[in-house]
């Protein structure tokens, strides 16, 4: 959705490069297992797709002659370190196994939960949030939210399916969107363009 928006409008107005780069980092850390494990064709295709789209978005925002001029660097002020450092620390302490790949995987789970924050902060500062941006954020929130339903199903049907790190992170990630979803639903009902209160 985001790539379509950027390509169609030749603009990344209202999009946080910080959030996009954090997602690229999340996918790198999580999908290292592309090199040493195979689950299914679907799984592999989606992992490669996520990596490719994340990097393509970052490339457009940083290097495309036209698109990069629409990036509002002054407003996108969230500091990487405030998200990366606590997640790295937590991953070192709270993990299933203390190995490089497992710690990086756990780090990616924690980081994904909070990676939307720069985007949410940027949107709060944006007067006119365009529909594609609002829809993109809503879809991103719904994506992990729908996982919760799947986790409940798997918990009920699969033995040994206990995933506290993933579950708590996923619920926290979805909760971060609660406020956004509230205003998104209000504006959608009133058929108005999304506006977040300052």
């Amino acid at each position: 959705v985001l790539l379509l928006k950027i390509r169609a409008t030749r603009s990344c107005r209202g999009i946080s490069l910080k959030t996009q780069e954090l997602y690229a980092l999340v996918f790198i850390c999580r999908y290292l297992d592309l090199f040493y494990s195979y689950i299914s064709l679907y799984n592999t295709v989606m992992k490669v797709t996520y990596l490719a789209t994340a990097f393509s978005i970052v490339r457009y925002m940083r290097f495309d002659k036209v698109v990069r001029q629409t990036y509002d660097k002054e407003q996108d002020t969230f500091r990487y370190i405030f998200l990366i450092a606590p997640c790295a620390l937590l991953a070192l302490v709270l993990n299933h196994r203390f190995s490089p790949t497992e710690v990086l995987w756990t780090f990616s789970i924690y980081l994904e939960a909070v990676a939307i924050l720069p985007q949410l902060v940027l949107m709060q500062r944006t007067q006119n949030i365009d529909n594609l941006t609002a829809n993109y954020v809503a879809l991103l929130g719904a994506y992990r939210g729908f996982y919760i339903l799947n986790w409940i199903y798997r918990f009920a049907t699969e033995k040994h399916y206990r995933q506290w790190i993933v579950w708590i992170s996923g619920v926290a990630q979805t909760a971060l969107y609660a406020d956004f979803f509230y205003y998104y639903a209000l504006c959608w009902k009133a058929n108005q363009r999304l506006q977040l209160p300052a």
């Binding site: 494990s37 996520y50 299933h96 995987w105 790190i165």
Partner: peptide
């Protein structure tokens, strides 16, 4: 491993 089950998720 306890974490193996989640590795089929994206």
């Amino acid at each position: 491993s306890r974490s193996a089950a989640a590795k089929d998720e994206l």
